[in-house]
Design a protein around this nucleic acid. Structure first.
Lengths: 205, 205
DNA sequence: GGCGGTCCTATACTTTGGTATAGGTAACTA
DNA sequence: TAGTTACCTATACCAAAGTATAGGACCGCC
């Protein structure tokens, strides 16, 4: 019987999903409340076949958690689970070596199918996991940002002033203004607050 | 056997929690993906004893959904479920007539106990539902905001300018500036972007 | 009545944010 | 080689944001 390790910081979600999977009689399910204890458990006696990671969890900053798990246990199959992630996140997860992506919009039965599929060595990646996912013209816009504009946006997302950003990046305030103006245009918003809100909404930082 | 209606927009979470509750053999569980269909189902044949609402769900803007449900079916017990809500939200829910508050940090077994408790007519309200909940000096700060300041903050969170806010609220731009200045001070932040970010982080709007 | 609070407005001011234009460097590319 | 792009800087200007102070209207409260 395959061993599954499920890492999610919400006890309720974790317990119930684990119970549901166990009830199918097909899997043995271990759980962990965060990435670190998950990795510890994987070093233990039980050989884990599949690690399911929640996207929003202590220790998982963005997709870096995937990399950590993959590096530590390259042989173990990885699946990312998320309630909010959009297609971009799913895509990024797959390119980083994940074997599956499980949106929480899935039904419980579909999840079991997906897990079975992944365990059999396939990659499960529901391209249609949600409504057509609004054109996302804006998500593409983020890709158009230059390095400096990206760094500037990151600082905007902490609510810093142009002056502070200039100091942090080691450039002049005028230059920051330029970057801000350009990134506002690229993102199609009209001021820094909207830019910060948009970036946060897209879970960029 | 008591009838429970569980409303959550995440299929996976909803299905597994419902399955877990059903498996206890103590309840009959119906489900709905949003508030509207939940209210529809309650108008049907089955008499619902307890309605469990997810805090973040289409149709639930903040706690208004609680009010709607309570007005439509005053006799039905209400519980709010949330993965992110802080103590303030829980408190507000209770003062609005909810019979229980179920944080997703609860274990599955505790949830069943809580539901049993609520169905017996008690109010379940775990004051200690999370880590000591970081001093949250700032969460209290939100309570200090006057009505107008709150409305102003709400508009800030869409990235509007003072001029636009003034138009929306039907007051002068100077007045908006005053409200902004005051709310910045109360929240302990130094500009509108930080205020918007903070409010969003606390899931206020 | 007076007191305190919220809300609104006004004038006046400083700082910050955003735009426009122009010019310079370096790196990569056709 | 010339052209493109990202990056940096400069000057200048206008708009928006934020601060300070003062005053009036309304309310509930002691």
């Amino acid at each position: 019987m395959p061993n599954i390790l499920l890492a999610d910081d919400h006890d309720l979600v974790r317990d119930t999903i684990a119970a549901y999977l166990e009830a199918s009689g097909e899997f043995k399910v271990l759980t962990a409340p965060n990435l670190d204890t998950a990795l510890e458990k994987m070093g233990g006696l039980d050989a884990i076949d599949l690690l399911i990671l929640d996207y929003n969890m202590p220790g998982m900053n963005g997709l870096d958690g995937l990399d950590r798990a993959h590096k530590a246990f390259p042989a173990v199959k990885l699946a990312l689970m998320s309630g909010v992630a959009n297609r971009e996140v799913a895509n990024a997860a797959m390119t980083r070596g994940a074997n599956g992506f499980i949106p929480k919009s899935l039904t419980a039965a579909s999840m079991v199918n997906a897990i079975r599929f992944v365990l059999s060595g396939e990659r499960y990646f529901p391209f249609d996991f949600a409504a057509p996912e609004a054109p996302t013209a804006r998500d593409e816009a983020f890709a158009d940002l230059s390095d400096r504009e990206m760094q500037t946006l990151e600082q905007l997302c902490i609510g810093l002033s142009n002056k502070e950003i200039a100091r942090n990046l080691g450039i002049q305030e005028v230059t920051v203004k330029l970057h801000v103006k350009n990134l506002l245009a690229k993102l199609g918003v009209s001021n820094r607050t909207q830019a910060a809100l948009l970036a946060k909404e897209r879970q960029l930082f």
